[in-house]
Design a binder for these strands. Structure first.
Length: 577
DNA sequence: GCCGTTTTCGGCCCGACTGTTTTCAGTCG
């Protein structure tokens, strides 16, 4: 899909126009278009063929033409021209925290600085002296920014961000001065990766809370410190922003701080049309400046005649329009999950026995869990030979007789081999309650071959689920190439579910593909792929991904009660035997 | 550059913090 290529070009055009000091609204238009393309569930080439480009929000006549130009020729003239006008190094400079377009231009015009290394050298040689508005402090800030860029500050996995935030929140929450506290930002929206951690606090003594915050042991550096807002960077380099507000502003501050930016802008525009003004402190009548609400978050939506919109879908990707029409999905929740369908035991590369897993599952109030150890091809992960699998089935059946209110499902995570065949014979698969299939090798076979391989597995009548379908590892490995439309069509036709793997590095399917899967009417499962007991709790990340993909209870198979689930799992086999 | 139950032109979210300034520009979220 060229969606991302074009999104990247539009985003870069926005950066270039910013350096040129162009109309800020034009710049915003490019940024918005880039974001919308990134999260478009359909293929942009198909939209172009159907002549429906201008139906994509943020795409008008001009951008539609640029998209068509790129699809046709692989280039956008306007973009090429801009790149010719503005030295590449300037984009490098703007990427430094603390250096914006104005400073970058100044540095280029007055000192002909072309890139980040040159800038560093000039600062160290004190060559910036005499430039307006750039004195010692600013030089120090830029140097620090350069260090950050060079250290390659990357986004964290959602799971990492979650535990870091939990630690800070529990410390602050123990202060008597803290009345109420909540995570905010992309963390609260449960994005798969998080850059900064945002935390919001209610307190009548903000100074005290700020003081404790900036003196936390994990603080490596104080970035900013004010009365209502402070930022620190941890020793590991993660920025954490803390905002302290009065009780009557908590709702509006939480909404503002949670974002997304695009969602907030949309709401604020709606408010303006009604003669209202929304900011972090509340909702005000524009004329009289009289405050009418802001204590609770849902008040913001109420004054705009909208139902509450869950944080996970606040991306301005149609949720506000859906809310207006009363068509918001009722998102699946963690409480609705009745079991985990992807777990490894000691039998392969997991850390715990079946009994220990059962005990943990019972504590989580699950009705069932599927034991899905690796198959023989993955000998490196202790993959089970067929005879071992048969013994494991017996052990599971025996254990089930002793268990109350919990059922272990005998399963496998069978390897889809390089030639598309499964690693376990059909006659053995037939004895299992659930078959999860996955690709673990041969990622570079190319789109056509990989698609064929996966479809072969999808068509096997014993395969219930395709695990971690895209194969991506966040920050480590790109997804392998697949014809997704075809995969999803086949999965739907053959009644094979796709998994949302809840492992923090995977979160695969991702939110966007979840949304497309729903549009096409697929069934999905959420599995943790847990190898240890503590990893069972990652279910919440999988649910969050499903929620970001607008999925409801009825879309997720493991919200079913045990008897319904078993019926659904057996359905295909019976139909064909 | 997009967008329209106040508009096909004239709007386009809003504020905090910093550093360098005597009232504000730049950057960020």
């Amino acid at each position: 899909m060229k969606n991302f290529e074009i999104a990247k070009i539009f985003a870069e055009i926005a950066d270039l126009l910013e350096i040129k000091d162009e109309n800020p609204f034009r710049i915003r238009a490019y940024r918005k278009a880039a974001q919308n393309l990134e999260s478009l569930t359909r293929d942009i080439a198909e939209e172009a063929e159907n002549g429906t480009l201008e139906e994509i929000p943020g795409i008008g006549k001009d951008l539609a033409k640029k998209i068509e130009e790129y699809l046709g020729s692989g280039k956008v003239q306007f973009y090429e021209r801009l790149k010719g006008e503005i030295p590449k190094g300037l984009l490098e400079l703007v990427a430094i925290p603390g250096v914006g377009p104005k400073t970058a231009r100044l540095l280029h015009e007055r000192l002909n600085i072309q890139g980040i290394d040159e800038l560093e050298k000039m600062i160290r040689e004190h060559k910036l002296k005499g430039l307006p508005g750039l004195k010692e402090k600013t030089e120090e800030n830029i140097l620090r920014g350069i260090q950050l860029v060079k250290a390659g500050r990357e986004r964290m996995h959602l799971g990492t961000a979650h535990s870091l935030a939990e630690g800070i929140i529990s410390t602050l929450n123990s202060l008597p001065e803290v009345e109420r506290i909540s995570p905010a930002g992309s963390l609260r929206r449960m994005k798969e990766t998080v850059k900064d951690i945002d935390i919001l606090v209610i307190s009548s003594r903000p100074t005290k809370v700020m003081e404790v915050f900036i003196n936390l042991p994990l603080v490596g550096e104080i970035v900013a410190q004010g009365e209502t807002k402070s930022s620190i960077r941890t020793r590991e380099g993660t920025q954490v922003d803390l905002r302290v507000v009065e009780p009557e502003s908590f709702g509006s501050a939480l909404a503002y701080f949670t974002g997304s930016k695009a969602h907030n802008i949309h709401l604020r525009e709606m408010a303006r049309k009604r003669g209202l003004k929304i900011n972090e402190y509340g909702i005000f009548k524009e004329k009289s400046n009289k405050r009418i609400a802001g204590k609770e978050e849902d008040e913001i939506y109420r004054v705009l005649d909208l139902p509450f919109i869950p944080p996970e879908i606040r991306e301005d990707l149609g949720e506000i329009e859906a809310a207006q029409k009363g068509e918001l999905p009722s998102l699946v929740s963690l409480e609705q999950i009745r079991g985990d369908l992807h777990i490894h035991s000691k039998w392969s590369d997991g850390a715990h026995s079946l009994k220990e897993l059962a005990e943990a599952a019972r504590k989580m109030r699950y009705e069932y869990i599927a034991i899905t150890d690796h198959s023989q091809a993955l000998w490196i992960a202790g993959g089970l030979k067929e005879e071992d699998l048969l013994r494991q089935i017996d052990e599971i059946r025996a254990l089930n007789k002793k268990l109350n209110n919990l059922r272990l499902l005998a399963g496998t995570e069978v390897d889809i081999r390089g030639d598309g065949k499964l690693d376990i014979e059909d006659k053995v698969l037939a004895k299992l309650d659930i078959v999860v299939a996955a690709i673990h090798t041969g990622f570079k076979q190319g789109k056509e071959k990989l698609t064929k391989r996966m479809i072969q597995a999808i068509k096997n009548k014993y395969v219930n689920v395709i695990a971690h379908p895209s194969g991506r590892l966040l920050g480590e490995r790109e997804a392998y190439e697949l014809d997704w439309e075809e995969i999803m069509r086949q999965a739907r036709r053959n009644n094979t579910a796709l998994e949302i793997n809840a492992y923090p590095q995977r979160l695969d399917l991702n939110d966007i593909r979840c949304r497309r899967a729903k549009e096409l009417g697929l069934s999905l499962t959420i599995g943790t792929d847990a190898h240890t007991l503590s990893q069972l709790s990652m279910m919440k990340l999988g649910v969050a991904t499903a929620r970001r993909g607008w999925l409801e209870k009825k879309d997720i198979m493991n919200t079913l009660h045990l008897s319904q689930l078993i019926k659904k799992l057996e359905f295909r086999r019976k139909g064909k035997v």
